[in-house]
Design a protein around this nucleic acid. Structure first.
Lengths: 245, 245
DNA sequence: CCAGGTCATTGACCCAGATCAATTGGAATT
DNA sequence: AATTCCAATTGATCTGGGTCAATGACCTGG
């Protein structure tokens, strides 16, 4: 996991360097943010924010993976976003969280108190502009996912999820795109919640993809994709973008 | 359909007064926009923009209804948004459209050429800020819809859709919230595409809701909801927001 | 007033994925 | 090595919604 390209960013302690927030910020602006910045880590399974809670910070994921979920009273839950390192958390201008954010493994967050962040945002067009950009990306991802949820078969859904994670992972290393290898950051149940399936169906379809040689498993979580284009075919994916919230 | 509250907006010709774009703009800014503004109407079924096309304008829907859809190569299609009067179309900063936008009936659009609009946006924080706000609303709507697509039954899906349209419509008139009456702006097929169902299932579930007295039909498109809270119950909806893209 | 077209309803049957239930396989604890 | 625990697999069965097909209900134009 080499450091991404984006540089000239002041937040020196963050390995990911706030790709999300700071890509176009200059040092002065970041100095200001540094004064209200803090780090916090969360254990696997621990809630980071809960739907309806007052949200007093925004920030980005430094390491680990967190999920964004929505729940009905009867317990049915749907994941609406997956937060990987460098992803931004929080909705400037809104004070209550709309979703549950839960750490799936040990998560390190780099947080800014919301008020100062919003003040800074109001004064520096760069940041506001960058945030709009990011929000549009998330919107695209959400809408791409609507197609997955509404119209794809279970097998295609699994392939779509694996393909998104693989591509996202592969963009960090930058080897050739045919063979990709990665650690699944989700339990079968979490995958099911993302895909609108049951965990049994997820398990069956993963086994089926393995039997058909589309993927290889090492243990239960380590996935090897011998041929990315094959996987993307299985996903029924014409998209080349590959966003992920 | 009385004119909404938002005022002090220069775009005099638009009945809806650009709630979306201009809520906080002052006259000077709007004068500038007026010089690059034009109107265009589209007939039922006519594409407004096509996925992948160069998008040279942004704008808002003045009247009529349009759909935002995504399609797979084999023809499966998923609606990812419904555009009602006052909704904004276009993604500032992106030059290619990501979805198909199609008029479902006669649609009047008020458009701004994209370049001048973006220039204005870069100079006036209000507009950028408002746009971020709107995009966050759309993101919430998309994510709410992910729950509908992933976890709700066919009956709940129909109830969710009717409830969203009814609430959106009812907020324009402002009678009591128990009895609501409105014209469905979608064919059964379009509803199916929104809900990730087939048109037959949509038809069956609409009939079922009618048989159970949750809704009444007058013709095929005119819906009467005698008791909104009943309908929202059927939708399994705890949300009070009721966003719609 | 009838012909043809579009949109919607309804029925009969089927299947992908849900549900219920038993088992396996590690990893951690004792 | 035995015990617990939890994630995951696998099997058997059921069902909600898909599929295929026929019919109805309006329109619009001739």
């Amino acid at each position: 996991m080499a450091a991404p390209v984006l540089s000239h960013v002041k937040c020196a302690d963050c390995p990911i360097r706030h790709r999300a927030v700071c890509a176009r910020c200059n040092a002065d602006e970041l100095d200001e943010l540094d004064t209200v910045k803090y780090y916090r880590s969360y254990e696997a399974g621990q809630p980071i924010v809960w739907s309806g809670d007052q949200m007093d910070f925004v920030g980005s994921v430094v390491s680990g993976v967190a999920t964004l979920t929505q729940t009905m009273e009867d317990g049915r839950t749907q994941m609406v976003g997956l937060l990987l390192p460098s992803d931004f958390v929080g909705r400037p201008g809104r004070d209550a969280a709309a979703y549950n954010v839960v750490a799936t493994n040990t998560v390190m967050m780099c947080c800014f108190r919301r008020k100062p962040f919003e003040d800074l945002m109001a004064r520096t067009p760069h940041i506001a502009h960058r945030l709009l950009e990011m929000t549009l990306d998330e919107l695209d991802a959400a809408r791409e996912w609507m197609l997955v949820l509404g119209r794809k078969t279970a097998r295609e859904k699994i392939a779509s999820l694996l393909s998104i994670i693989a591509r996202r992972d592969a963009s960090l290393e930058n080897g050739p795109l045919d063979r990709v290898e990665f650690e699944l950051p989700l339990t079968r149940e979490a995958m099911a919640d993302y895909l609108g399936l049951t965990l049994e169906t997820v398990s069956r379809q993963v086994s089926a993809l393995k039997k058909d040689g589309v993927i290889e498993l090492e243990g239960k979580r380590h996935i090897i994709v011998p041929d990315m284009s094959r996987l993307m075919d299985e996903a029924g994916d014409d998209s080349d973008g590959g966003y992920l919230v």
